[in-house]
């Protein structure tokens, strides 16, 4: 399909990807800089990684963030999946319009508004601010993102398997657990990972609802960055990029193997 019209898109693709990846590449390069500047090369060094690993404040904040992200991702995946399943399978029900609205608005709502609004709720009902309030605020927007991923998968599902299970006498709940959930697995994993990343990444909403006690990793990074650039942050960024790349590679490998196994089984079944 090479023709004259595909020249321009190919060129913008090249420039576009250069634009998207150049900052990340430069970030990684300067995390190994011996000097204190993040733009002038002064030789190779891993000292900033050493300093990062001894920075109590960053380590503590990272641990807080990871705990929040795990709880958030788990609850958001459960709630988002239930919501997505209801929206794509239950047809019309009372209050559907409002529900659809509440499931899509968090995707675009500016952080500052959500953050302020959620904080005012917690203050209004007298809830002590801390990790619990950050987690609740994160679940609220994460579940909408999980739902988008899960819905795409639910609508692509072959309903005949679920119907077959029920014709054979399985109850709806059992069918859901034994048939539907395994078929949704890739979307559930992707949704969980996305919710985890969104939570780990959020600065604005966490700043509003955190209260004096809890500081998440983005809050510490932001306060450091405001005082000036530091190769330590570059080192942190590099570690995050590595971690994400690793997670995605592992997930892709697992699904690839599952797919191959499924294809083999299918072929075997057709032969037999």
């Amino acid at each position: 399909m090479v023709n004259k019209t595909s020249f321009l898109p190919t060129l913008t693709l090249l420039f576009g990807f250069a634009f998207l990846y150049a900052p990340i590449v430069i970030l990684i390069i300067f995390s190994f800089n011996a000097g204190k500047l993040v733009s002038v090369w002064a030789g190779f060094s891993t000292q900033w990684y050493g300093e990062l690993l001894h920075n109590e404040q960053i380590l503590r904040a990272a641990w807080v963030s990871i705990k929040i992200a795990v709880v958030n991702a788990t609850i958001a995946t459960i709630l988002g999946t239930l919501g997505a399943y209801g929206l794509s399978r239950f047809g019309a029900f009372k209050g559907r319009t409002l529900f659809t609205g509440m499931m899509t608005a968090p995707l675009v709502m500016p952080d500052v508004i959500t953050g302020l609004a959620t904080l005012l709720l917690f203050v209004g009902i007298g809830w002590t601010r801390g990790m619990s309030t950050i987690t609740i605020a994160h679940i609220t927007f994460s579940l909408a993102f999980v739902a988008v991923i899960v819905r795409a998968r639910v609508s692509a599902l072959d309903q005949s398997l679920e119907e077959a299970a029920m014709d054979l006498g399985a109850r709806p709940v059992k069918t859901f657990i034994v048939i539907t959930i395994p078929m949704l697995a890739p979307a559930l994993v992707a949704g969980w990972l996305l919710a985890f990343t969104l939570s780990l990444d959020d600065l604005v909403i966490a700043s509003f609802v955190a209260g004096p006690g809890a500081s998440t990793l983005p809050m510490v990074v932001f306060s450091k960055v405001r005082l000036g650039v530091s190769p330590e942050i570059n080192a942190l960024g590099t570690l995050i990029v590595l971690l994400v790349a690793l997670c995605i590679a592992v997930a892709a490998w697992i699904f690839h193997r599952q797919e191959q196994e499924r294809l083999r089984d299918q072929q075997a079944a057709e032969r037999g």
Binding site: L20, L27, V38, L193, V225, V229, G237, A245
Partner: peptide, 20 residues
Amino acid sequence: LVILPFWTSFLIRVYAWIGI
């Protein structure tokens, strides 16, 4: 390749532009 940057920290990707 389009989605991948989205998975890494937004704050740190914005920060990277300061150095550039």
